[in-house]
Design a binder for these strands. Sequence first.
DNA 1: CATGAATGAGAGTTCATTCAT
DNA 2: GATGAATGAACTCTCATTCAT
Lengths: 203, 203, 203, 203
Amino acid sequence: MGVKERKERDRQEMRDTILQSAHQLFVDKGFDDVSIRNIAEAIEYSPATIYLYFKDKNEIFYALHMEAFKIFNEYMFTLAEIQDPFMRLMKMGERYMEFTFKFPKYYDIMFIMQAPMNCDINSEEWKMGEAAHCQLENLVKECQDTGHFTGKDYKTLSFLIWSTMHGMCSLALRDRMKIYVEEERSKMLEKSFTMFKQILETI
Amino acid sequence: MGVKERKERDRQEMRDTILQSAHQLFVDKGFDDVSIRNIAEAIEYSPATIYLYFKDKNEIFYALHMEAFKIFNEYMFTLAEIQDPFMRLMKMGERYMEFTFKFPKYYDIMFIMQAPMNCDINSEEWKMGEAAHCQLENLVKECQDTGHFTGKDYKTLSFLIWSTMHGMCSLALRDRMKIYVEEERSKMLEKSFTMFKQILETI
Amino acid sequence: MGVKERKERDRQEMRDTILQSAHQLFVDKGFDDVSIRNIAEAIEYSPATIYLYFKDKNEIFYALHMEAFKIFNEYMFTLAEIQDPFMRLMKMGERYMEFTFKFPKYYDIMFIMQAPMNCDINSEEWKMGEAAHCQLENLVKECQDTGHFTGKDYKTLSFLIWSTMHGMCSLALRDRMKIYVEEERSKMLEKSFTMFKQILETI
Amino acid sequence: MGVKERKERDRQEMRDTILQSAHQLFVDKGFDDVSIRNIAEAIEYSPATIYLYFKDKNEIFYALHMEAFKIFNEYMFTLAEIQDPFMRLMKMGERYMEFTFKFPKYYDIMFIMQAPMNCDINSEEWKMGEAAHCQLENLVKECQDTGHFTGKDYKTLSFLIWSTMHGMCSLALRDRMKIYVEEERSKMLEKSFTMFKQILETI
DNA sequence: CATGAATGAGAGTTCATTCAT
DNA sequence: GATGAATGAACTCTCATTCAT
């Protein structure tokens, strides 16, 4: 049995090596501009080797998609230390933006790209996606317990908040802020986010 | 003279046929994954024929982009009849959504798709895009004259409003509302938009 | 009959117009880099029209080839005024070089290019080519009558002279003088030609 | 280790096969009129395969060019045994012609064909070309020490000699000796070369 | 397990040429 | 007689993928 296990472990290691490389390239250049060859070169193996660990390029894509969600959720789920739910919600927003601009390509595949989304309700990613969404809704509800968002449907508000965050992030990521001069763009994002937080405070 | 006219009409028709096909494909597969060959096959002509009507792939994209903006601006600029600026702003939002879901592919091209954006500040599209953006900013400012949005920077608020609208629209268009069951999705959009308007009223 | 004649005349005129255009383009860019389209544009007709006057691109090539020979021979055959045959021979060399560097592309097709040379001994070009060659041989022979080239076979010498001229010209035309710095190249040609004439004088 | 060696040998063989094919085609049709596809077809491989052995079309040409120069220089540089410089020069000429008609396609590539010449002064070919040229100049100078070519600039004379040799060779190679009947052509070349040597002796 | 070798399919683009009008 | 429209065939080059070794 030990042999089998070691083999399996080796296999996992190799998969990880490939994914790490792919990850790096992907984050740098985006999915379409990364070739199997690029990945192979990066890990100093032949392209053919990749196919021993992944069926095809799509499978790598899915794996990365999942990794994206994993990282995203790590960003979202480490807010427990903050007591006040509203503060926590604000922090969650900050984290969202942080993630977006630190991993723009990941944000892209998660929330923007026209992609063969695995819709299988039992899939790993689906669960991760839902978990994050759930957390938001729960948090908004919690905020209501401390006097915020009175009279508002928490589910609807959650979607509205998400939409706003996504709106800002995706306009930036997909280069739709060119109406503003280059230097002002990030400032505009910041001001806009600040205003958003402030509005949330008053309602 | 009739001949010349007919020829010109034929030419326009062909251009339109190509554009329609291209449009469909672009939105389905993204700019990079559509080839001139694809388009040619779709309209059952040879690839070379495309080049009789468009200089290159980019020109096709630009043509679509421009048409999209034209229709969009028609939607945005017919609000003059409404006296009250705030009412007009609300109406503008409605129109925005209307346009989005009536011409999802155009919306996609304008605000979501990654593509070689013509940044020429003198280009037709740029002007159209800026016009729409200007109109929003002016409208927000006008609202302030009638007692709305006190103390808020109108430019920042304009971007925030746009972001929120875009967030909702693009999440819907790019199939990121799957956490909600199918039947609830449009309802959620509606509720969310209504809540947004309501919030804007109170700030 | 008058109609037929006019038609024929018109036809010739059009052929000439095309050839003139082709000539210009050809001299500027070389055979391979001139397209039927280029020619058509230059004369402001449609590409299809060209085909009413020439079977295909090759036929234009042949026509130009012939024109090249015609111009070449004009350069070679206007030496009659010079009495002394040796002086005439020298002048002929000068004319050869003049032609070469004034019509490099023509020189190229005539004497360098790997081309579908029409070898028909009755063809126009053949006759022109031979005429020029004959003239050289006759001239060399004439020189012998005035005491030059004693004891040399005039045919062989003629070929040797031609070879030398062609050697210098074709090395220059096909960019094989790069061992010399740019500014010295034409000077080297000149000096070399001068030395050649001087040698011919002494033998 | 045997495996590695065999693979390397196979690789070299394939490169050679490609080069041979390319060479034939280049000389037959000219650089521009040979396509990677042509070459691929000739060796009955797919076009993509070519790219496994050569970066691009230019690299194929350069490889040939270099090989040509290598052989050429081998012909030129093995004259040391001849003491008398003038005799050596004559021998060099003979070798030049020998090379030309033994490897006409190489000669073509080196001195006639129009192609993207690598002008990099540090390139291997450049050095080889220059070495040969230098040798000629030095040899001519040496001849002057033994009483030849008095009063002539050795550089200019070197170029003139090269031109003459090249003139004869290239007229022959590019089929411009058709004015002579087939059987006389090589005789004419010979006689002409002999006369050239004789002339050099008297000046 | 790993890979070198090979390829089919495809990208954007150009051009000589044809043909119905 | 002239042409607008159309195309087949070609170009260089890249890439995901397969397979014998």
